[in-house]
Amino acid sequence: MANCVSCTNKLSEQGFQKLEQFIDELDEKNGALISVLHKAQEIFGYLPREVQQFVAKKLEIPVSKVYGVVSFYSFFTMIPKGEHPISVCMGTACYVRGAEKVLNEFKRELNIDIGETTKDGKFSLDALRCVGACGLAPVVLIGEKVYGRVTPDQVKSILKEFE
């Protein structure tokens, strides 16, 4: 689900064709908005205005409704993620074991805030709500890779792995 196929910020014609096919093959369009958006984000990596307009047209609903749903759920994003999306778990278990300090260190090292992407498009930073690996708290996810028991002084060397 979290596969970010195209994080390169390009909205390919092919992507739209794929999405169109997905929508056309739905048994029931009514109530399918969220699953269509999941598919769209899987294809494009994010949900910019053009994609939202396309979805609205295909499902025959107002764009405002699509935007309302996209902005409501934290899983949907309108900003392209970085090549290596960083998620710092801010669930309570990680919080009490020092996740906030780790998050602050990432912010400082990358000079971006939560929800932003570095200018070179390499990293994006998010706070995540519980990945359920509380035994490893505090947990950081970079792409699919899981880092457990992270301390602020490890942040620099973790980032180096991706250079």
């Binding site: 689900m1 908005l33 969220i34 958006l37 309302g68 749903v69 409501f72 934290s74 899983f75 709500r129």
Partner: peptide, 25 residues
């Protein structure tokens, strides 16, 4: 199977139902 998209309030049953219908939870 219906997928949620990350909204704590959707644990509330009426919100959950609205979300399953494809709308804001």
């Amino acid at each position: 199977i219906k997928y949620g998209a990350g909204a704590f309030v959707c644990g509330e049953e009426t919100a959950l139902i609205h979300s399953m219908e494809g709308g804001r939870g």
